[in-house]
Nucleic acid binder design. Structure first.
Length: 259
DNA sequence: ATGTCCTTACCTTAAGGA
């Protein structure tokens, strides 16, 4: 089973590039971030006609996440549990009904810039809330994957020019510590379980010729529960998508799991 | 570290977010 995450930076702007990638890669499940659309405005028919079920958790203008799946989805949860006052659409979960079901969480973790400040406080609070959700999921001892835009550069090797990010909310020690704390619950960074070394990125800024200079960062991740990690057979980044027509600033990151 | 892109509100342009 092929599961991917893709921050599309607006469904309207990506209405050609996203189907093009789906046709080429044929993932079974895709977690989308930054759909920037209300649920009722999401062009679900485009993807249903391609054989996908569509579950969205959107909001106007900003944020918004979705899960596309060729397999049936059950028990959809919208919104990260733990704070009913949080109105930002950044989390969606569903169980993919394969022969061995797997819980899939799609997330768009807050950017947090500028740091310090209220936006960074929100990021750290959101990460603490996500950690609690991970603890609850781990307690079920079932297979799950948390796939999305984490807005976290885990290590210096995950940035082409780490010195540029020293004061950025994506790379501050507190950010990286909160991410590490999630891993240390017993989760696996799927990409790093399969690929070692520098030079692997999932985001290149539109500005300052970042793509042409390969000035990228790896911030889109799939974290696996132990039961999911047992089934991991491959992981990769679809870098070539960034060179296509009208690309997102992110590219898809994927894992292959035993069915 | 700003050479861009996306969205909305409201228009032939600007602001906010990333």
């Amino acid at each position: 089973m092929l599961i991917a995450t893709f921050n599309i930076n607006g469904i309207k702007a990506r209405i050609e590039a996203l189907p093009r990638w789906l046709d080429a890669s044929r993932p079974d499940v895709v977690c989308l971030q930054e759909i920037k659309s209300l649920d009722e405005a999401f062009p679900r028919e485009v993807f249903e006609d391609m054989g996908y079920r569509v579950e969205t958790h959107g909001q106007k203008s900003f944020n918004g996440v979705a899960i596309l799946s060729r397999l049936p989805l059950e028990d959809v949860v919208r919104g990260l549990p733990g704070d009913t006052s949080d109105e930002q659409a950044r989390w969606i979960e569903a169980t993919v009904m394969a022969p061995r079901p797997i819980r899939v969480c799609g997330l768009y973790l807050p950017n947090g810039n500028p740091a310090p400040g209220p936006k960074y406080d929100y990021k750290l609070a959101w990460m603490a809330r996500m950690e609690q959700r991970l603890r609850d999921l781990l307690a079920t001892e079932e297979a799950f994957v948390c796939a999305g835009d984490y807005n976290v550069i885990p290590q210096a090797e995950d940035a082409a020019r780490p010195e540029l990010w020293a004061d950025d909310a994506l790379f501050l020690p507190q950010t990286r510590a909160a991410f590490r704390q999630m891993l240390n619950l017993g989760l696996t960074d799927a990409f790093r379980a399969r690929v070692e070394g520098p030079g692997h990125y999932s985001f290149w800024d539109y500005q300052a010729g970042a793509w042409e200079r390969n000035n990228g960062i790896r911030i889109d991740h799939l974290l696996l529960s132990p039961q999911a990690a047992d089934r991991l057979t491959g992981a990769g980044i679809d870098k070539q998508v960034r060179a296509g027509d009208k690309p997102s600033d992110h590219v898809p990151v994927w894992i292959m799991l035993d069915d």
